[in-house]
Design a protein around this nucleic acid. Sequence first.
DNA 1: AAACATTTGTCCGTATGTATA
DNA 2: ATATACATACGGACAAATGTT
Lengths: 223, 223
Amino acid sequence: MPIPSNYSSPTRVSAKKRAFAQIQEWIIDGTLQPKEKLNDAELAQALGVSRTPIREALQLLNVQGLVEMFPGVGTQVTSVKKEDITKILPPLGALEALAAELATPLITQDTIDTLREINSAFARAIKKGDFYSALKQDEKFHNIIVENAQNQYLANSVSNLQAHVLRLYFHQSIILTDTSIDEHESMLKAFENRDPETAAKIARTNWLRAIDEFYAEQKDSRE
Amino acid sequence: MPIPSNYSSPTRVSAKKRAFAQIQEWIIDGTLQPKEKLNDAELAQALGVSRTPIREALQLLNVQGLVEMFPGVGTQVTSVKKEDITKILPPLGALEALAAELATPLITQDTIDTLREINSAFARAIKKGDFYSALKQDEKFHNIIVENAQNQYLANSVSNLQAHVLRLYFHQSIILTDTSIDEHESMLKAFENRDPETAAKIARTNWLRAIDEFYAEQKDSRE
DNA sequence: AAACATTTGTCCGTATGTATA
DNA sequence: ATATACATACGGACAAATGTT
């Protein structure tokens, strides 16, 4: 029986990592609801592993702020209020603004072209009303900018906040609008002009605007 | 035999937390050097616990970026170059600027007075040449501002970066100068004037200046 | 007040994987 | 290439702590 040569690479991940990814996904997409109790023995059985990797995964999720642990009492999914976007987006906006600023002198025209393509896909998804796909494109767009800032400390800080943004999307706090399409293009223009201040300013606005839009939507739905 | 009434509270911490705090301290103060190998069995014996809490503590330190783990191979203290301040301080400065901005409308005169006292202690420590004490006062000063921003996501992001700043201090990358004394006072004035833009700008400069001073010092020592 | 039930915290043995002789 | 040494990854059992009946 022939053995595929690329056998080891595809799924050689530890039980801990699989548990982490799976539980995180369940929390983000709402399968595990806020305040829901997390019993490590149950999760262990559900994922077919022992308690050890589950415990370790839960501790990492605790650091990320997705679960809270009460020693000797219990572990649960952290609660999340829709208004939390007002807490999460300002720091994320500040960091993404810095990322845009730092990336400006480093980014290549090739990368800018790639970003332009992603923004087109983002635009198509928005027009089609496929908001989940739009969200993924938006995430890809911003991640490429962060990568190009070439600062691991910055990248880590951003990724910790991003999980929360994703969760808020599933809790209907984040609304994607076509305003972002033009903002993205303006950022690309700023990159091409090597204008870090403008790039930073747009990046920040791009995130903070979502706060205003959320409250406008809230107001609409009350009327 | 009388039992102290406040017995349970003082040292009722888990082995994991003790291990985490101890190992983190050793890494920050240089007892455990960059690139040094971390054997969990050894650490377990040194701290008088089993390997489990050590493993868990190391995983948290890994997330914090103080240790790197190579599955199945080994765990070691992350390397740190003095130039890393140019990577760490920009995101920290951006977040502290945001903290100052958000704290401006929320901070009370009482708190401002407390900050002024801390800045006096900071000034005295600088004049005396007691830089470690100055560092602790500086940390206290900034932490109070972050607390008053009342944003847990922001506070978490900041504290993750702070451990690295402390380690850089012990590696002689961070230099404290008396310029900070006046900058702190200017921030307090901005708080009293309820001027968030100015407060944010000073907070950011206060951190970024350390980069310039580091390179000036490097240059001096070459001459 | 005390024993109980539940859940987390810790210990240690074993399996698995990697690097080296 | 095989074997060997070594470190991590995981599993399962026990101990400790908490809240409750």
